[in-house]
Amino acid sequence: MPGNRLYLSDKQREGPRMNAAIVASNLSKKFGQFTAVNGISFEIGQGECFGFLGPNGAGKTTTVRMIHCVSPVSSGTINVFGETAGLENRKIKAMTGVIPQEINLDSGLTVAENLLVFSRFFDIPGNEAKKKVAELLAFVELEAKKNSRIDELSTGMKRRLLVARALLNKPRLIIADEPTTGLDPQARHLIWQRLRLLASQGTTLILTTQYMEEAEQLCNRLVVMDEGRILKHGSPRQLVSDEIGKEVVEIRIDKAQDEMLINLAAGCSCGHERAGDTLYFYCSEGHDLVKKVIDLGLPNVRNRPATLEDVFLKLTGRSLIE
């Protein structure tokens, strides 16, 4: 029905297929006998914010390191804005900004020197670099610290400086590898705002994270990875509704009661999962189930909206990953 905007399919909702910024096909990375990334394929559109989620060791960082050409691919291919990783590494790096997971600022230099020296690496001429550095220090609210040494900065300031450093070359692609690890909420929100602003200006953004809230705040689309493979992909909302539903009912109770509760929930069309001391029901609507459970007078019952975290835990397992 042309012109009817009420009934858009999921495909239409995403809009017309965007020009791909990054195309990876059958990508693998082996370290000796260990396979860190195992034949994954994905496409990232221009201007999209694309997330890689997964537990430690899932292969997220390895994947993004291959995208920005600091780690050679073992097999498969990656194209970044039409350039092939491994062949045109300098070109790809010249248009990419990286916010690394580890704080690797140059401790031998001051805040401003860090940015000035780095802009040299991108062949930015001196005058232009000075202007850009002043502008970026303002952007991350570090003007007052421009002559400070790196070890005088708080973790939040260091992370903001990493953001500024990643923007020196006006990148078409920004790779943020767990950019808010170890930050307080204020600093975290500041970084999210800056990243959203960049995305709204058309920069393609790749984010790896373990914080589901971060992914929900920033990503248009994401993949959940585990053990080097992509388990699921989609928009955060779509993943939640496909994998979990709308609501979750958590009941902290002894395992012996599981059968009784599952029978009780039979009419409510909820999926269920036991993890540790808690029984989870994934429902399109939790109200009916909660009413029934309340009649039992159980002490630890919680009904809440389903989140990306539920998807993550369902897909990658609720047990501890070492």
Partner: peptide, 14 residues
């Protein structure tokens, strides 16, 4: 210790 080289090789410096 400082992981400085990692930051350099993420730029066009090989």
């Amino acid at each position: 210790h400082e992981r400085l080289y990692d930051s350099l090789i993420a730029t066009p410096v090989s």
